[in-house]
Design a protein around this nucleic acid. Structure first.
Length: 661
RNA sequence: GGGCCCGUCGCCUAGCCAGGAUAGGGCGCCGGCCUUCUAAGCCGGUAGUCCGGGGUUCAAAUCCCCGCGGGCCCGCCA
């Protein structure tokens, strides 16, 4: 089916631009001199004003290298070039060459493409598929996922979807940080509970969240009390007052926590009272790192409880992983030890503040930073590899883990979806890889950074158990969706309604998290996040359902779509038809760009524009009621194309597209 | 003290990397459209010193410099 015309079929719009560029390039080459094709292509833009045509090439930037007057060159080219396929007219306006598309032939090209590719339309495969690892979410298994993790998870999953639909081979990984102090505290609390109290009827990760927060807060309180009596003994009044203030706020948090689970709180409060908790936690951490058999089992047990909760939540959002990697595995399997040995042999090995380290500042250079994608003015301190007591540090483990990801999947590229606050450690990671001779890995490690999600009037804290969980957000979204859906739906069965409610709720969350560029902070707002109007998932879903409904009725009345009897010229009768065809033609290259630039918001922007245009057209140009069969076929096929594109964009964004709503 | 990111109608946001012709959308507000394909819609109106000031350029929201405001980072934490 995909023949020698496959480029045209796969990417109608991109193909047309290429043809234009070829032609202009050829002309310039013959008459003026060499100009890079890629450069020329990058100049092609869409005029901001409709009257200037569909595509435009400003010549100002050619003026210097070719030593020409842009205004004259535009005149010359516009008059001497013609016969570009799919281009009806070429005009020049003071230095711009403006191209006017030949809509009937563009329409035929685009609809042929849709006809031959069907539901695969828009998935433009790369020339060389890469093996790519996307590591995302990777939340610490000590509390439920919250709104910040949601941004990470949705971005990560959307990148996965974008890249795989671009033809790459993509693997999703979740890194379980199960060796840190926080996990040790949680485990400590867990071990102090009797068997009978180690289960719960609340959602597992929520229970873990409370267990962790209670244990942490109690330990802090007891430590603080010790310090306070020391301050009294020393007669340090100022310190005393400060500590008491600290204690007050901790006790306030503790009281809130007690309300959440009295039995657990009172038991631990009593149990941990007389112990040297700090010492025990230190010892627990050592055992965890060493892989002590007994601790190992309990550790996996308690972490698994939390992960079960994560999985439940993520499943609601249609997010899944191929691999769950444990920090403990990286350590226990001596991967970290190997890295440390390699580091000691490296020419960049040094002792920094008495600890073994890598002398990263020595690697600082413009060329290298540019090659590794590190901000030039970033000052990168030496990377300390090991504590004086011999235990390893997070970034060292991450170093081992990064190599593990590359090797385990034979990855060409590894993308880490990690918050912007980790820019420095991520840059250190890259440089350290480079210092150890892993140049390819260093160059192909991408920190996909995103900014925080703020909640107005709330300071989130996992340690104190203060957060809005993702589960609460999903729950609220479903309630709001239910209200809206029941108010308007034409569906009858409860099952169908339920499915639409879930699709709308999840869609709203995913759409909102992916529609703002990752480098901008988001302030969470219910009204905005769960909007059911224009520029929100439900609007796109609704538009899709509307298109589906037209097609359904068309089928009932006239049977299957008649591809062989279409009046392509009728595209000119209504401006919005033409606008739609152009948008549809652009879909493959738009989706490809979103994937290549790792910018889902490009797709969001596109999908919203397509829905707008379709809805606007729908209002003024009836499809089924069109009496002329050849014109009706044109309209129906356009509707079909819109439906396909909406369904595919939603699919790429991980949002369901119900045929009825 | 140093560094990173962000600043665009009342609110949210696209455009900034690769400078180009009248800065797009959405929410809100005002007015209109359901006996024809789903009104979660459509049409019209309202609103912008593109944070401020310099500079580069034929041309700056976009590039450079100096400020201002907000967030974040500079641990033998993770």
């Amino acid at each position: 089916m995909v023949s020698e015309n496959s480029k045209e079929i796969l990417d109608p719009y991109g193909h047309i631009i290429n043809t234009i560029v070829e032609k202009i390039h050829e002309y310039l080459e013959e008459n003026y001199g060499t100009i890079g094709k890629e450069f020329l292509r990058s100049l092609v833009e869409e005029p901001s004003v409709e009257a200037y045509g569909d595509l435009s090439l400003p010549l100002f930037r050619l003026a210097r290298p070719l030593k020409v007057n842009p205004v004259k060159l535009a005149e010359e080219i516009a008059t001497s070039i013609d016969g570009i396929p799919y281009i009806k007219d070429i005009k020049n306006v003071s230095g711009y060459i403006n191209f006017f598309l030949d809509y009937p032939s563009l329409t035929k090209l685009t609809l042929d493409s849709i006809r031959s590719l069907g539901e695969k339309y828009g998935y433009l495969p790369v020339d060389k598929p890469l093996r790519i690892v996307v590591e995302h979410t990777s939340a610490n298994p000590i509390h439920p996922l919250h709104i910040g993790h949601a941004r990470n998870a949705v971005l990560g999953d959307t990148l996965y979807r974008l890249l795989s639909r671009r033809g790459h081979i993509v693997q999703r990984r979740f890194y379980v940080n199960d060796l840190g102090r926080q996990v040790a505290i949680m485990l400590y609390g867990y071990l102090n509970l009797p068997e009978t109290m180690r289960s719960t009827d609340v959602k597992p990760d929520h229970w873990i969240g409370i267990l962790y927060a209670i244990t942490h807060t109690l330990i802090e309180i007891y430590e603080l009390k010790k310090k306070i009596s020391e301050a009294i003994n020393k007669g340090d009044n100022e310190l005393y007052r400060e500590l008491v203030r600290e204690l007050d706020s901790l006790v306030a948090s503790a009281n809130e926590l007690r309300e959440k689970n009295r039995e657990l709180f009172d038991y631990l409060a009593n149990k941990l009272k007389e112990k040297d908790n700090e010492k025990e936690i230190q010892s627990l951490m050592k055992k965890m790192e060493a892989g002590d058999q007994e601790v190992k089992e309990k550790l996996r047990e308690v972490v698994e409880i939390c992960l079960q909760g994560f999985k439940e939540t993520l499943r609601e959002l249609d997010i899944d992983f191929d691999k769950w990697d444990y920090e403990s595995h990286i350590v226990w399997s001596s991967l970290v030890k190997k890295i440390l040995e390699e580091a000691r042999k490296s020419p960049y090995f040094t002792i920094h503040k008495g600890a073994p380290a890598l002398d990263l500042p020595r690697l600082a250079s413009k060329e290298l930073y540019r090659r590794l994608g590190i901000t030039l003015s970033l000052e990168i301190p030496p990377l300390i590899l090991q504590r004086s007591d011999g235990t390893t540090l997070y970034t060292t483990k991450d170093l081992a883990y990064t190599l593990y990801k590359f090797r385990d999947f034979q990855a060409d590229k590894v993308i880490n979806v990690i918050g912007a606050e980790q820019k420095l450690p991520q840059a250190q990671l890259k440089l350290a890889l480079y210092a150890l001779g892993y140049k390819r890995e260093a160059e192909n490690l991408i920190h996909y950074s995103y900014e925080m999600v703020n909640i107005p009037g709330m300071k989130m804290s996992g340690r104190l158990g203060k957060y809005i969980t993702l589960d609460e957000i999903i729950e609220e979204a479903k309630l709001r969706a239910e209200k809206e859906v029941l108010k308007r739906t034409t569906l009858e069965t409860e099952e169908e309604k339920k499915q639409v409610i879930e699709a709308v709720a999840v869609g709203a969350i995913r759409y909102t998290l992916v529609s703002t560029a990752a480098n901008k902070p988001i302030t969470f707002n219910w009204e905005q996040a769960l909007s059911f109007e224009t520029n929100a998932a439900p609007y796109i879903q609704y538009t899709h359902a509307r298109a589906s409904s037209i097609l359904r009725k068309h089928e009932e009345k006239y049977g299957p779509i008649q591809w062989d009897n279409i009046d392509y010229n009728a595209i000119l009768e209504n401006k919005k038809r033409a606008k739609l065809i152009k948008l549809i033609a652009k879909y493959p290259s738009t989706q490809a760009k979103a994937a290549d630039d790792l910018k889902p918001e490009i797709l969001v922007d596109y999908i919203n524009k397509l829905a707008d245009t379709f809805n606007s057209w729908y209002q003024e140009d009836p499809v089924i009621h069109e009496p002329n069969p050849r014109k009706r076929n044109l309209k129906t096929t356009i509707t079909y194309a819109v439906k396909i594109v909406l369904a595919n964009t939603l699919e790429t964004l991980g949002i369901k597209a119900p045929p009825r709503m």
